[in-house]
Amino acid sequence: MRILVVGAGAVGGYFGARLVQAGRDVDFLVRPARAALLREHGLVLRTIAGETERIPVRAVTVSELAPEYDVVLLAVKSYGLEGAVDDLAGAVGPRTVVVPFLNGMRHLGVLTDRFGEERVYGGVSMVMTRLGASGEIVEVGRMGELIYGPLGDAPVVEPDLVHKALDGAGFTARTAQDIRQEMWDKWVFLASLGAVTCLMRAPIGRVNRAPGGPEFSAGMFAEAMAVATASGFPPSERIRTLADRIINDTERDTSTSMYWDLTHDNPVEGEHIVGDLVARGRALGVPTPLFSLAHTHLSVYSAGREA
């Protein structure tokens, strides 16, 4: 199975590197400047244990693509989605599936409109990594899991073949029976944690130690649950238990990559993670006053960066 990883950032770079180390046939689609660096230095991974790994990888650019891949792993930030879809189109052949690992749900429509439902899977990634200043991938916690599954009943590449391509590479890989439910579960949790920490500009423990903090955090999660339930995907018991433990926590400095980006003057995925939840709530008649406030806050921040 030939695998193309679109993006060599904190998510795609991490899982792609592990697949390479497991002996899989992997190319990385990147920009020319990044390709030159990867060809010379490989992917650099700094582990949570403080070790530095250098993994030789094959980097390709758009002009070098051919429709010869079986699986395309799409791991870019949501604000780069449209450009990435245009770039990877040349890799999609009659027996290719695109497996995206973006947060939220809006990207599924973009991908199915472009490639057809039979060539698109849903996907969830769970990993604690960041991209360092020199392009290295930095582990900040011990977590690595990919969850995936077809959107329709007749994918051009069967789930067992996709699973065989991704399994046994040093991280957990599993096929979901209902990938949309898995995606909604992660979205509800991530959007709530991200909206709370970004709006309050503090990790969740500090927020919940403040007067009114626990009620604010619980209210944010309740809004997300209400939108998910009205959309036909009520959060699972597993994600509600996780939220009870993390979103109500008063001790740990837990946050999200969106909070990291916000506090380091980086672009944020406010529209895809928070704005889309607000829009769906509005369309379904579900009030989301706290999420709407967080969306406004993130929008003002983004406008300031672009000014």
Results as ranks from 00 to 15, higher is better:
residue 232 G to L: 00
residue 285 G to P: 07
residue 196 V to G: 14
residue 221 F to L: 06
residue 299 S to W: 07
residue 247 I to K: 00
residue 218 A to W: 09
residue 168 G to A: 08
residue 209 R to W: 11
residue 153 D to F: 05
residue 30 V to E: 01
residue 32 P to R: 08
residue 214 P to M: 04
residue 169 A to E: 06
residue 155 P to I: 04
residue 216 F to Y: 15
residue 91 A to N: 09
residue 243 A to R: 00
residue 163 H to P: 11
residue 280 R to E: 13
residue 307 A to F: 03
residue 162 V to L: 09
residue 224 A to H: 10
residue 166 L to A: 02
residue 301 Y to E: 04
residue 64 E to V: 01
residue 231 S to C: 05
residue 206 R to W: 06
residue 195 A to N: 08
residue 132 G to S: 13
residue 238 R to L: 05
residue 96 T to G: 14
residue 224 A to C: 13
residue 39 R to M: 09
residue 241 T to H: 00
residue 167 D to H: 13
residue 199 L to A: 05
residue 57 V to K: 08
residue 23 G to V: 07
residue 202 A to Y: 07
residue 108 L to Y: 01
residue 1 M to F: 07
residue 103 N to R: 06
residue 242 L to S: 00
residue 253 D to A: 00
residue 14 Y to D: 11
residue 42 G to V: 02
residue 100 P to H: 05
residue 73 L to K: 01
residue 203 P to M: 06
residue 301 Y to Q: 05
residue 11 V to Y: 08
residue 290 L to S: 09
residue 139 E to D: 11
residue 20 V to E: 11
residue 151 L to G: 10
residue 35 A to R: 09
residue 203 P to F: 03
residue 84 A to K: 04
residue 286 V to F: 05
residue 134 S to R: 14
residue 194 G to I: 01
residue 248 N to I: 00
residue 118 E to T: 09
residue 126 M to R: 14
residue 138 V to L: 15
residue 166 L to F: 06
residue 152 G to N: 12
residue 165 A to F: 12
residue 157 V to G: 14
residue 185 D to R: 02
residue 246 I to D: 00
residue 146 L to Q: 10
residue 183 M to I: 05
residue 167 D to G: 12
residue 275 G to S: 10
residue 267 P to N: 07
residue 7 G to H: 11
residue 295 H to K: 08
residue 290 L to K: 12
residue 35 A to W: 03
residue 38 L to H: 03
residue 147 I to V: 14
residue 257 S to R: 01
residue 87 D to A: 13
residue 287 P to I: 03
residue 196 V to M: 15
residue 239 I to Q: 00
residue 237 E to I: 01
residue 83 G to M: 02
residue 87 D to I: 06
residue 251 E to Q: 00
residue 145 E to A: 13
residue 188 V to T: 13
residue 282 R to P: 02
residue 223 E to N: 08
residue 163 H to G: 15
residue 44 V to T: 12
residue 33 A to Y: 05
residue 221 F to S: 04
residue 263 T to G: 04
residue 68 E to A: 14
residue 61 T to Y: 01
residue 63 S to V: 03
residue 97 V to H: 15
residue 135 G to E: 13
residue 85 V to R: 03
residue 57 V to S: 06
